[in-house]
Each structure stands twice: as C-alpha cells, then as structure tokens.
Computed example of a mutant assay.
Amino acid sequence: MCRWMAYQGDSIYLESLLFEQEHSLVHQSLSAKKSEVTVNADGFGLGWYDEREEPGLYHEILPAWSDCNLKSLARHIRSGLFFAHVRASTGTATNRSNCHPFSYKNWLFMHNGQIGEYDSLRWQLDRLIPEYLYNERRGATDSEVIFLLMIANGLETNPEQAITDTLAQILDIMKSKNIKEAFRFTSVISDGTDMIAVRFSSDEQCPSLYCKKFDDHIVVASEPLEFSGNGWDLVPESCMARIKNRDYQITPLPALLKMAV
C-alpha cells in the first residue's frame, strides 16, 4: 500500500515535512510502519498550490529517497497547501502517468488502496467516464478512474456527495459481478482551499488515516510523522474528515455501511 501526506496552513518549504521529520514521508518510503508493505519504491509525486489557480505537479518513477531533484525542489518550493505521495504499485506499471497526485483544473487527488479484482472491472468502470473527461485519463490506475468518476458525479459543485456517490457506484458494480476481494480506499482531495479526506473499506482492513492539528497548520497522513504518534488522531473507518481553516471535522459515511460487498 502507498503512503501519502497532505498539508494545509502557513506557507512552508516542502522539505520540512518531506525530509526533516523523524518519520517523514521519505523515511516512510523506506520503512512504513502502518502498512502491509514496508517499502514504497514505485515512484512518487508532489502537488502544490501557489499564486496560480491550478496546482503544480512533479512525478518521478525513481524511489523518493534516491532522487536529488526531489530534495532540491522541496528545499525551494513553498506552499500553504500541498500533497505528497510515495507509491507501492498494486499491479499497474511504474511510470509517471500512474504516479499520484492526479489533477483536474484546480483539484488534486491522491489515494491509497485498491478496487478488488480491478482488471475484471476496468472496462465497465471506464465506460462510466463521460467523453468530455475521458481524454483527461493519463494512466492505467484504478485511483485515476475513481477521481474521474468523482468529477463526473459532481465533485466541483458538491464534493461530499460526489465522493459518496462514486464509492457507492463502484460497490454496486463489484456486487453485480460477485467480486469478493475488498475495495479499500483512503484518500484526500482538495480544490486549493479546503481538503476532504476519506477512510473506507468494504472489509475490516481499512488503510490507516491520521490527522494532527498544530498551531498554524494541519497535516493529514497515512501514518504519523513521528514514531510516538502523540497528538495524531486516527480517523475512524467509514468516515470523512473535512479540513478547513486549519481545523477538521469528522463525519460518518452511513450510507456506505450497508453497501459493503
């Protein structure tokens, strides 16, 4: 499983969280503690907001710990809202187009998890992507399909409903095809101002998701950036965390609880 983190707060240099923390994301790429997979070496990506409306992006197929470009960029880029992701592939190729985060206009999305038996569902899921969005598909991951379906389901006008509808849509298709392998989904999405993080699984092995509020910022991550984990709140399963103005509110996803395959 992948590892990721997202930041909202005062503008900082990216290196302060990507490299300088005790259990930074780059450290997690070598030694994850809350994941089935210890090493996440199938590429990485950054997404950040600055003066422009659309986010900047950087993707690379090298392991995060071995790319000198990442270290240089993180030392010089400042942002008040950014995403970072280290990838452990669940079957698709290791190339830049499959690296997170994914973007559309002013939106960023990244994900940890997988759609069970995705290969047997891929054709059917692709058919749900509207024609006007299909050319936005760059890679072959289930994560990108989920993001495009959210956009099709109204992400730009009602993100909470679009997220819920998309998860339900995928679960319905899995159920119709009698898929028994789990759908696991821990993600974060942003419009450049606020963020929404989701922790959901159709079984009892939901990928981890943590939030921590500081005086001048908030961090959402697959696992704490310190070994102690002090002050990091584990988001409950089947819940959504709305992150706004350096604070967060957690609400359940009750409609999905009855739809688990």
Score class of each variant (00 low, 15 high):
110 M>S: 08
94 T>E: 04
113 G>I: 05
163 I>M: 07
205 Q>C: 06
240 M>F: 01
260 A>G: 09
88 A>T: 09
253 L>C: 05
243 I>L: 04
103 S>H: 11
156 E>I: 00
206 C>Y: 08
139 G>Q: 03
41 A>Q: 10
190 S>E: 04
138 R>Y: 07
17 L>N: 05
110 M>L: 15
12 I>Y: 00
256 L>C: 05
20 E>N: 14
231 G>E: 12
231 G>C: 13
55 P>Y: 01
193 T>F: 11
113 G>A: 09
196 I>N: 01
53 E>G: 05
161 Q>S: 14
247 D>S: 15
77 I>E: 03
39 V>W: 07
210 Y>F: 15
224 P>L: 10
55 P>S: 01
45 G>R: 04
105 K>Y: 07
222 S>K: 08
145 V>T: 15
53 E>D: 12
163 I>E: 04
27 H>E: 12
119 D>Y: 12
201 S>Q: 10
127 R>Y: 13
127 R>Q: 15
238 S>G: 03
168 A>I: 02
225 L>V: 04
121 L>K: 02
76 H>R: 13
259 M>V: 03
80 G>Q: 11
85 H>C: 06
145 V>L: 14
22 E>A: 00
44 F>E: 01
231 G>Y: 13
47 G>C: 09
87 R>G: 05
180 K>Y: 08
36 E>F: 14
227 F>M: 12
135 N>H: 15
154 G>N: 05
78 R>W: 06
2 C>K: 02
127 R>L: 15
199 R>V: 04
97 S>R: 10
143 S>Y: 01
175 K>I: 09
119 D>W: 11
86 V>Q: 02
59 H>Q: 09
133 L>Y: 01
157 T>C: 08
122 R>T: 05
63 P>F: 07
204 E>Y: 11
149 L>F: 08
154 G>E: 07
234 L>G: 00
164 T>R: 11
245 N>P: 00
186 T>S: 15
224 P>C: 06
251 T>V: 15
112 N>E: 08
108 L>R: 00
131 E>Y: 11
59 H>F: 10
170 I>Q: 02
70 L>I: 10
36 E>Q: 14
190 S>A: 13
152 A>H: 06
251 T>F: 10
159 P>G: 08
177 K>C: 08
203 D>Y: 07
29 S>Q: 02
121 L>I: 03
64 A>K: 06
27 H>Q: 14
16 S>M: 09
207 P>N: 08
233 D>T: 13
184 R>D: 09
142 D>P: 08
232 W>A: 12
153 N>Y: 09
17 L>A: 01
259 M>K: 15
132 Y>P: 06
221 A>F: 09
173 I>R: 14
187 S>W: 05
166 T>D: 01
72 S>G: 06
142 D>W: 01
211 C>P: 01
253 L>R: 03
247 D>F: 03
74 A>C: 15
248 Y>D: 02
